[in-house]
């Protein structure tokens, strides 16, 4: 069934899928059983990986793309989109995931970087990419490499929302700055941010050209609502669900809180009766080399 008038794998389709995920929760899962729990709880997509970030942090060593078998099993039981992570700069891992047919690739600082200088040329791929960012310059660099969705880096596996808040505030305030800047200021802003002026101009015209999601440290329904009120359009939850005492209930509660992020009565309803959240880490006690957000540039 080939049609000459058909277009596939275009930027619009890549960003289009990100648009469909708005107002939703993307959950980290490490096997098919967790993927089922996530979908049943109302996840809008699942992120397949071998270990959740808090375990990667604990275990140390090199964290790589998940095993193909695990991803395949997750794809088999999921009717929602399946994402998977590759190491920063590891385009061969990405080629394999594309061949496998995952719906979105996360070039992620949670895994051990394969390239400490360059990120993947994401325009080379049919599969859309999401990338993390700490500030707008970083977000725009990833977009100029072809990313179709941006998320905050936060500090993955920490159970501490402070870094995601810092990154989201930074990105939002830099967007406001560009929107109020004069045209004559854009080149200097672009130079200082380390981002192409063409994309800086797009931000001035109509905001960030791709959806902007929150990730890194979300552990409670309140964390998710906080990020949404700050301007996130969806929320990724990594260790926060399956490292808590009640994954299914917590997953459902976070889904509710992302939809009703502006409604305190609904947030209270979602938050009560939950058991213990995942244990959290004090960011200030992390050594420099333990800070995943410093991976990538």
């Amino acid at each position: 069934m080939t049609n000459t008038n058909e277009n596939k794998n275009t930027r619009r389709l890549k960003v289009g899928l990100a648009e469909m995920l708005k107002g939703g929760v993307i959950m980290d899962v490490v096997n098919a059983e967790e993927a089922k729990i996530a979908e049943d709880a109302g996840a809008v997509a699942v992120m397949a990986l071998e270990r959740v970030p808090s375990d990667i942090r604990k275990d140390g060593g090199v964290a790589r793309m998940a095993s193909i078998k695990v991803i395949q099993e997750i794809m088999k039981v999921s009717s929602i989109p399946v994402m998977a992570k590759v190491r920063i700069g590891h385009f061969a891992e990405a080629q394999i995931l594309e061949e496998l047919g995952v719906d979105y690739i996360d070039e992620s600082e949670v895994l051990t970087p394969a390239d400490e200088e360059f990120h993947i040329d994401k325009y080379e791929f049919k599969t859309p990419f999401v990338c993390g960012a700490k500030n707008l310059g970083e977000a725009l660099r990833r977009i100029s490499e072809g990313a179709a969705m941006i998320r905050t880096k936060g500090e993955a596996g920490s159970g501490n929302i402070v870094e995601a808040v810092r990154h989201m505030r930074k990105i939002m305030s830099e967007i406001r700055l560009i929107k109020s800047a004069g045209n004559e200021e854009l080149v200097t802003i672009a130079k200082n941010m380390g981002a192409p002026v063409e994309i800086v101009s797009m931000v001035k015209e109509s905001g960030l050209p791709v959806p902007n999601f929150a990730a890194g440290g979300v552990a409670t329904p309140a964390d998710a609502a906080l990020m949404m009120q700050m301007g996130a359009e969806s929320v990724f939850v990594g260790s926060g669900i399956f490292k808590s005492e009640d994954p299914a209930a917590r997953a459902h509660a976070i889904v509710q809180s992302v939809t009703h992020y502006n409604n305190p009565a609904k947030l209270l309803e979602a938050s009560k009766d939950l058991k213990e959240a995942m244990p959290g880490l004090d960011i200030h006690l992390l050594k420099d080399e333990e800070r995943m957000q410093e991976r990538g540039w």
């Binding site: 058909e6 277009n7 596939k8 389709l13 989109p81 047919g101 719906d103 979105y104």
Partner: peptide, 16 residues
């Protein structure tokens, strides 16, 4: 039928 045309990689835009 859900996801009837395949996964994201099979998503498409058409004027046909």
């Amino acid at each position: 039928e859900r996801n009837s045309y395949g996964r994201q990689i099979d998503s498409f835009i058409t004027k046909d």
